[in-house]
């Protein structure tokens, strides 16, 4: 496990050349990748969401594509479509793959796309395949969708339905950098024009091997119980939470905790992993009631309260 930790440390170091700070965000993106799942990134504009994901794709030597979601974006714009191709005097339909045929897909501002387009992306996320017409195309592995969401400017958007949001393993919140980090950002990008190059540290095979490894990480029985206790507790608090998390959250929390253990160079899951991963796993899966919102509580506050209650 030590050699994996070294790899991830190098990865942080390398990404640090491009993205200042945001170590936790980078870590959570790696965890999503290791869990063979998808993540929803939420943060204000200009916080290096796209830059971080793009850099990650470079570091892992993965094919990267970006979809800028707009209300007029069609499902075929994502999945691809059949085009007429003329070869030796004959016209044939040829499939032109869309941006979804990549390893890392950045769906920028996913809440701006129509529900129809969002659901097209869903099939790709869940089934790792795309159906166009009568034909189903398998996507290249590994495949991750990292969708971003803007918490402001909600007018004219199509907020992700709960069922759709549940399919994202993590909801990663990107906060503002610290004062010193911001000074460093200014120094890095306000004076120089040249692009920083990053080393490739991982490849597809490595990633697929690590994904298998993550599932092999053992977890103690009492920690499994703790995970289920945390998730079920979200359904037992009508005074705070209107809708709790589904069993998919329990699976996600076990998996994410295992991935975090690997990232930290441990061959077992710790309570610390569970507590750290509970926030990104649960924050998009629970809906606070009016009373909690009136008190000015956030979902993170509710999760903190649950974690304190569950021993």
């Amino acid at each position: 496990m030590e050699k994996y930790k070294e790899t991830f440390d190098s990865l942080y170091k390398e990404i640090g050349k491009i993205v200042v700070g945001q170590k936790e965000v980078v870590e959570q993106i790696i965890i999503t990748v290791l869990c063979d799942s998808n993540a929803l990134l939420e943060g204000y504009p200009g916080l290096a969401k796209t830059l971080a994901i793009k850099t990650m794709a470079q570091l892992m030597d993965l094919k990267f594509s970006r979809i800028q979601n707009t209300p007029d974006l069609m499902p075929s714009d994502i999945t691809g479509t059949y085009i007429i191709e003329e070869t030796s005097g004959k016209r044939n339909f040829k499939f032109q793959p869309g941006p979804v045929f990549a390893n890392i897909v950045l769906a920028d501002e996913i809440n701006r796309a129509t529900p129809k387009t969002q659901s097209a992306l869903l099939e790709a996320m869940q089934e790792k395949q795309v159906t166009v017409g009568n034909t189903t195309f398998k996507l290249d592995m590994p495949f991750f969708v990292l969708a971003t969401q803007n918490p402001i400017e909600q007018e004219g958007t199509y907020p992700l339905p709960e069922a759709q949001a549940d399919r994202f393993l993590l909801k990663i919140k990107i906060g503002y950098p610290s004062y010193d980090e911001e000074i460093e950002i200014v120094n890095k990008y306000a004076f120089e024009l040249k692009d920083q190059k990053v080393r490739v540290l991982l490849n597809k095979e490595h990633l697929l091997h690590m994904q298998t490894l993550v599932r092999q990480v053992p977890i103690a029985n009492d920690l499994k119980h703790r995970i289920v206790d945390i998730v079920t507790e979200t359904r037992k608090r009508p005074n705070l939470i209107e809708y709790g998390a589904s069993p998919r959250a329990s699976i996600g929390l076990v998996l994410a905790s295992k991935a975090r253990a690997v990232v930290k160079g441990r061959n077992y899951v710790s309570k610390e992993d569970i507590d750290a991963m509970a926030y990104p796993i649960l924050r998009h899966r629970i809906i606070l009631n009016f009373e909690a919102e009136r008190k000015g509580m956030s979902t993170d506050d509710a999760i903190k309260e649950i974690l304190n209650k569950v021993k």
Partner: peptide
């Protein structure tokens, strides 16, 4: 946490 984890997964056999 290591002792408990290993005890609970005593029958499990994989590299990790």
């Amino acid at each position: 946490e290591r002792l408990r984890t290993a005890r609970d997964n005593i029958r499990l056999e994989n590299p990790v």
